[in-house]
Computed example of a mutant assay.
Amino acid sequence: MKNNELESVRSPRGRWGQDRRLEFIDTRLAWEGRLNRSALTDFFSISIPQASLDLAKYMDLAPANMQYDPSQKTYVAQASFKPVFAEATSDRYLAELYALTLKVLSPDLSFLGATPETDVVRHPARSVPENYLRQTLSAIREQRTLQIHYQAVSHPDPSERLISPRTLGYDGARWHIRGYCHLRRAYRDFVFARILSLSLGDPSEDPVPADEAWDQELDVIIGPHPDLSEGQRRVIALDYGMTGDQLKIPTRQALVYYLLKRLGVASSVPRPAAEQQIVLLNREALVAYVPELADPSSGTGK
């Protein structure tokens, strides 16, 4: 591999030029194990001579990755193939496949090529109005305030809030704005779907404190439910990719409760193994951040 040339084609310059086509070659070799010139000409609307130049460039930079098979009239990945331009991980492939299946990503923007028949479990849509998102992004970028009319679950009537948005969060089902609420004088999460109106304001007159809960990193440690049989615990460990019957999941303090709810371990009392196959192993360490985990009889967290 020629490092100086590799760094050159990885440069952001010419993102839709040859560097992008080299990434395309890399991706098709990784997941389909083959490609020919027509794959390049069809996808990028380039000439056959240009496609030949791209393939020659790829072979020059990664000579052990592919070879031409004259019997099939196509380039095939060699056993020594290692991706050099694409992020050829299962997580990346499945995330892109997920986006293609939901039609969030158009096929003409995906390098995956032929994909298997796929479907996913649909969830109720929690839409985010484009104008709300645009103004929120502007407020974060320019450190301005947002005036929102917000419907909280805890109050029957909506209220006016002045917030200084700082970050966006996703709990696995819905997006929210995390920002400093000038009414409550604390950081709060504001679900986009509960915002009845939103307008972009001026830079905050008062200095906004740091969001310590966002900056604080925590670990959530889960394991198989102890009441499961040895064989069942082994299956659960495989399902979650556990090591030594444990899985450590890093998260932010500001998102830890959402994660615990998503895992089904946010209550103070573990549920029976028939209802919940995993348990929270570091409950005591997290009680200070999630009072809902405290045993009511102990008085902790009150």
Rank of each mutant, 00 (worst) to 15 (best):
F190G: 08
P209N: 12
N131P: 04
L162Q: 07
E205L: 10
K103A: 15
D202N: 06
R134N: 11
S127G: 08
L109F: 08
L137M: 14
S159N: 13
V128K: 04
A213H: 04
E205A: 13
A125D: 11
L105E: 09
R184A: 14
R126G: 01
E130N: 13
A152V: 01
L112K: 02
H155F: 12
R194G: 02
H182I: 05
P107G: 07
S159Y: 09
R184W: 08
P207C: 04
R184P: 04
E205Y: 01
I177H: 05
K103I: 07
D189T: 12
I195S: 06
D215V: 06
Y180P: 00
V120E: 03
A173G: 12
Q147P: 00
A173L: 14
S110K: 12
T118P: 02
Q216V: 00
A213S: 13
V120Y: 13
P158W: 12
W175C: 03
Q135S: 07
R126M: 06
S164C: 12
Q147W: 04
L133F: 12
P165N: 04
R178Y: 05
L200V: 09
V120L: 09
S154P: 00
V128R: 03
A139G: 07
Q135L: 01
V208N: 02
E142F: 06
I148N: 05
E130A: 14
V153C: 08
A125T: 14
L200E: 10
D157G: 00
S138I: 15
Y150S: 05
F190Y: 11
D119L: 14
E160C: 07
I148E: 01
I140S: 08
R134F: 13
P156T: 14
R122G: 08
L200D: 02
L146N: 02
E217H: 07
A173Y: 15
S154Y: 08
V128P: 12
P129G: 11
G179F: 00
Y180E: 03
E142A: 11
Q143Y: 03
E205W: 04
Y187D: 03
T115V: 15
S199Q: 10
L183Y: 12
R178L: 01
A152P: 00
S204Y: 05
V121Q: 11
I177W: 02
P124R: 07
S110T: 07
